[in-house]
Amino acid sequence: MSLLTWPVRTQTRAFSSSALRRNDPLSSIQGSDAPPTNTLPPLNRPLGVRERPTTLAKSTTARIKELMHTDALMEQRRHLFVTVVSLLACTLTVVVVRVKEASVGYFHDVNMTRKHGGKTWIAPQVLIREDKALYLPNIAGKVLSDGSTKHTTEMCFGKTTILAMLNTKVSEINVKGFIDPTHARYASHPLYQCVQVNLQENLLKSFLVNLFLRSLRRVTPKELHSTYLVSSQNMEYVRDALGMTNARVGYVYLIDENLKIRWGGCADATKEETLALESCTGVLLKRLERKKEMEPHPSTQ
C-alpha cells in the first residue's frame, strides 16, 4: 500500500489524544496485540513541546508565572534536587552521589547502544497529523560557515526541514542512513533544507569541537555549512519531549513550515524508515508548494 494513501483512521489511532498525556515517548503496549519483547515498538506519540518556540528571552514576569505553575515547579524540583542538596549539605557524600548518577547515565546509554544499536522506537510510515503535532523547541548555535549565532526557529520557519541531532561518530552514521537519499532527491528544491545540529552539552567536548571547527568544515559539504549549527545548549528539559533518550545515537526530525515535528527517527535507519522519510518530505513539499501558489502576490494586494 502506498504511503500517500495510508488510511486516515490508522494515523488517528497511532497518535491518539491518550498518547499525548504520557510522558514516556514510548508508551507501554498492553493487550493481545502487543509485540514480542525482542522487537521494538513503533513511535506512538507526537514528539516536541506544546509551546510555540521563540527567539525572545523570557521576561522576569513570565519566568515568575512559569515557576508558579505547579507542573513546571515540580519539573524544576526534579531536575535541580541534587544541586540544591549539594549546596545545603556541602558534604563529600553528596558529591559522590552526583558523580555516581552521572556515571550511571553514561553507562546506561552505552548499554542501550549495544541493544538494538541504541534504537528505542520505530519511525512512523506516515506524517504525524498537523493538529496532533507538537513544536520543535528553539535551539541556538554557531553556524559552521561564519561562526555567527542562529536559531532553529528562524531557520526552519517557512520551509520543509530535515533536522538532524548528532554529537558522536555513531550519531553521524545514524543520521546519514536516514537523510542521504532524501537530501539527494530534494537538495535543489527551493522550499527544502537540511539542518544539522552538532549538540555538545558537555563543556569540555564543546570546547574541543569549537577548537577543531576548521577540520569539521573540511569533512562537511560546503553547501551545508550555512545550515550546520554547533550548539552547547542544555537540552535537559526537552530531551524526553523529543524522544532523545540515548545521547550516543543520532535523531532525525521532519519539520514543517510552522515549526511542527511531523516525523521522527532514531539510531540506525531501516530501509522502510528511509523510504518513509523521503515520502513524507515529498508530501510536505507538495503541500507547501500549493500553499505558496494560493498566497496573493504583493503586486495584486
Rank of each mutant, 00 (worst) to 15 (best):
A102P: 01
V219C: 01
P36Y: 04
M112Y: 05
L144A: 07
L254Q: 01
G117K: 01
K119E: 09
D131P: 03
L87N: 03
Q193S: 04
E75D: 11
R114H: 07
V230H: 12
I64L: 11
R129S: 14
H183V: 01
A102R: 14
V219Q: 14
H151D: 15
I261C: 05
R77Q: 14
N258V: 13
K176R: 15
S148P: 12
L208V: 14
R52C: 04
R114L: 14
Y186A: 08
Q233L: 04
V170G: 08
P296R: 11
N198R: 12
D24I: 02
P137G: 08
D180R: 04
Y135Q: 05
I261F: 04
V195M: 12
K115N: 09
T168I: 02
A247V: 04
G147Y: 09
Y237H: 15
L204V: 10
L285E: 00
M1R: 12
T60V: 04
W121D: 10
T227A: 00
S16N: 08
T5A: 12
Y237R: 15
S2V: 02
L56G: 09
S32T: 10
P137Q: 07
P124D: 00
R45N: 10
D240T: 15
A247C: 06
S206M: 11
N202I: 03
N246F: 11
R22Y: 12
R217H: 07
D256W: 02
L26A: 11
D268Y: 01
T55H: 04
K115A: 08
T12A: 06
T120Q: 15
M112N: 13
A123Y: 11
R63Y: 04
H297Q: 10
T152K: 03
K150F: 07
Q11F: 07
I179T: 06
R98W: 01
A57L: 13
E154C: 09
M165R: 14
L224M: 00
R214C: 06
L144H: 07
H151V: 03
Q301T: 13
K115V: 12
T160Y: 05
P41K: 12
V252K: 09
Q30T: 13
L20A: 00
I128H: 10
P42S: 05
T120D: 12
T113Y: 10
K271A: 07
L40S: 08
R290I: 02
A247N: 06
K286H: 11
S215I: 13
L163K: 08
S18V: 14
H108W: 13
R290G: 03
T168K: 07
N138H: 02
L56I: 10
T12N: 02
V110L: 11
L73Y: 09
T153P: 08
